[in-house]
Amino acid sequence: MITVIGFDGSPLSEQARAALACATLVVGGQRHLDAVPVPESAARLVLGALDGLYEALPSHENVCVIASGDPGFFGIVRRLREKDLDIRVLSAPSSVATAFAAIGLSWDDAIVVSAHGRELRPVANVCRAFPKVAVLTGPGAGARELGALLPDRTFVVAQRLGHPDQRIATLSSHAAAHSEFADPHVLLCLDESRLTSERGWIAGFGGVPGTWALGESEFAHRDSMITKSEVRALALAKLGPRPGRLVWDIGAGSGSVGIECARFGAAVVAVERDAESCDRIRANAAAHGVAVEVVTASASASVFDRLPRPDAVFVGGGGVDVIAACAETPAAVVVVALAAIERVPEAISLLTKSGRTADGVLLQSSRLSALPGDAHRFAAANPVFLLWGERP
């Protein structure tokens, strides 16, 4: 029998003490082994890679594994279950729950991500997209490193939770980038301008609220300068927005494409040269309750060099140079909307030259329109060429 004991620095339960008293092998990090009452007769194994634990198991009938907080929450329980081992779990509160409790903030609407042993960029993208994110950090992937990747956010860094030297620090993401923190620590990344007191019914990210490919009337726009919903529907399908991905919306106009991507949980950066349109994008994003970082600038390679790396790019405005620069990004897919047929061959050529497989469609739609006398017709909308280039 393997008993997995969650430890948060509090006195152990009677069950946990009884399991330890009978153990012939106790496994855990060095700080855990130093903190719990390990019997003198029991062997100790400092947990690193799990191979050492698996090799030791045949020699012991009663094994205790000490893990932080709730071992079933981004913890060791999953790894042990994958080996079909007979386990019993005695849990403690998760470090995330403890961190939110320390600042008196509810967390049923928080997104929880793990940076431990994982690529940091998708974690940063989630922090860009959502107003309340808890990050389980790891070596080289903590508050300092995330602070260097993020725009202005409030960081709450909960260090050494459950230990006598526990410390909660609240600071800006920019300040965190130049600070040192004790390990282990839990990071709460907050966009305080978007925190809400609304009571929900589902924990974490609830998916897209309602429908997508929203009608043009759902966005403020100038002189119908907006990607039509039929075009937006296919563009969204090709861009594949979801939590952890970052989308560029280039020549954003009203920001409708980027805002819809944000509703799917993606982080979004919109580039638009017109200052009035930029204000409109911010207002539209706020109306839909999502975050879109707006850059007021003419789209160019020099501007793109300063942006976070994209996973997908939508080009709704800009010339040949803009398409070429976007095609050279590491994004998995670049989607281009064009009205003029003369620009299509060159756009296809640029996507192909960048090592992408190019494809596209001509979208022609007719919308139901009322006529006098309770009659109707289908009125044709302007056709749009939608091209996309994907990397193998």
Rank of each mutant, 00 (worst) to 15 (best):
A339I: 13
T329Y: 05
L351F: 10
V303W: 00
G317P: 08
K353W: 10
R306W: 00
L338G: 11
F314T: 07
C326D: 11
I348D: 14
V322A: 04
R356Q: 11
A283H: 09
T329C: 06
A287I: 03
A325E: 09
A283D: 13
G317S: 06
R306Q: 04
F304I: 00
A358Y: 12
R343C: 13
L307H: 01
V322T: 07
A312D: 07
A283E: 13
G289V: 03
V322D: 08
K353F: 10
R343W: 10
V335L: 13
S302L: 00
T352A: 15
A327G: 08
A285E: 00
S298N: 12
D311S: 03
S354T: 05
V322G: 03
T296L: 04
P330T: 11
V322N: 06
V315D: 06
L350R: 12
V336E: 00
S298M: 07
A291L: 10
E293V: 04
G317M: 04
A286S: 09
A347M: 06
A301K: 05
I323Q: 10
D321C: 07
V292L: 00
A283R: 14
G319Q: 01
R343F: 13
H288T: 05
I341H: 15
S349P: 14
A347D: 12
A324V: 09
C326I: 05
V344R: 05
E346I: 10
E342K: 13
V295I: 02
A347N: 12
N284I: 01
V303N: 06
L307V: 01
